[in-house]
């Protein structure tokens, strides 16, 4: 099952690269390899790999009574969404995306503190503990990175707007 997915991804990757290379020359001047020469090599290897994987796993499925197997797998895939570990992971992805999205608007330090706090609470740390930990973490990051190491962190757009 995994192999057939990888095979399909591999095939579509190959096609995708060819589409990307449309406007770029393969050869330049007297026949020097151009900017799409190597990408097209990658694309053809990707297509070959994809074909091999798909054909191989199709044969394998046929031998082990394929269709029932396939239906079972789809059912498994459906169950996966209800699976708690998977939902935990998805929740984290969303939280992290919102975090990065907010950084330029309310500044690195504040957003980071919020992020630390919310993630901890969302995954079962008690509120007071989470608050202390996120505050301590941000304070030490501030001292270490910004004061000592002089790492530049994103400034809030809001802040610079008000400044002007």
């Amino acid at each position: 099952m995994k192999d057939i997915i990888v095979g399909i991804i591999s095939l579509s990757l190959g096609v995708f690269i060819i589409m990307l290379c449309r406007d770029l020359p393969i050869f330049i001047a007297k026949g020097y390899p151009g900017p799409s020469f190597f990408p097209l090599i990658l694309s053809s290897i990707s297509l070959i790999c994809g074909l091999v994987l798909v054909v191989r796993s199709y044969r394998g499925m046929k031998m082990s009574g394929g269709n029932a197997n396939l239906r079972q797998n789809i059912k498994l895939l459906g169950n996966l969404v209800k699976d708690i570990p998977v939902r935990n992971a998805i929740k984290f992805i969303v939280l992290m995306a919102v975090y990065i999205l907010l950084i330029p608007h309310i500044g690195f330090l504040l957003t980071s503190m919020l992020f630390m706090f919310i993630v901890q609470v969302a995954y079962g740390v008690s509120m007071s503990r989470a608050l202390t930990i996120s505050f301590a973490a941000i304070l030490s990051i501030y001292l270490l990175f910004i004061v000592v190491l002089k790492v530049v962190v994103p400034e809030p757009i809001l802040g610079t707007l008000v400044f002007r």
């Binding site: 984290f92 992290m96 975090y99 990065i100 950084i103 330029p104 690195f108 980071s112 992020f115 630390m116 993630v119 901890q120 995954y123 079962g124 740390v125 930990i133 973490a137 990051i141 990175f145 790492v151 530049v152 962190v153 994103p154």
Partner: peptide, 25 residues
């Protein structure tokens, strides 16, 4: 450190580390 505290902390370091390389979001 329990995971539910360690993980957001590391996520934070990943963000600041990636940013610090070129100062680019």
């Amino acid at each position: 450190i329990p995971r539910n505290i360690l993980v957001p902390l590391i996520a934070l370091f990943c963000v600041i580390g990636s940013y610090a390389v070129n100062n680019s979001l």
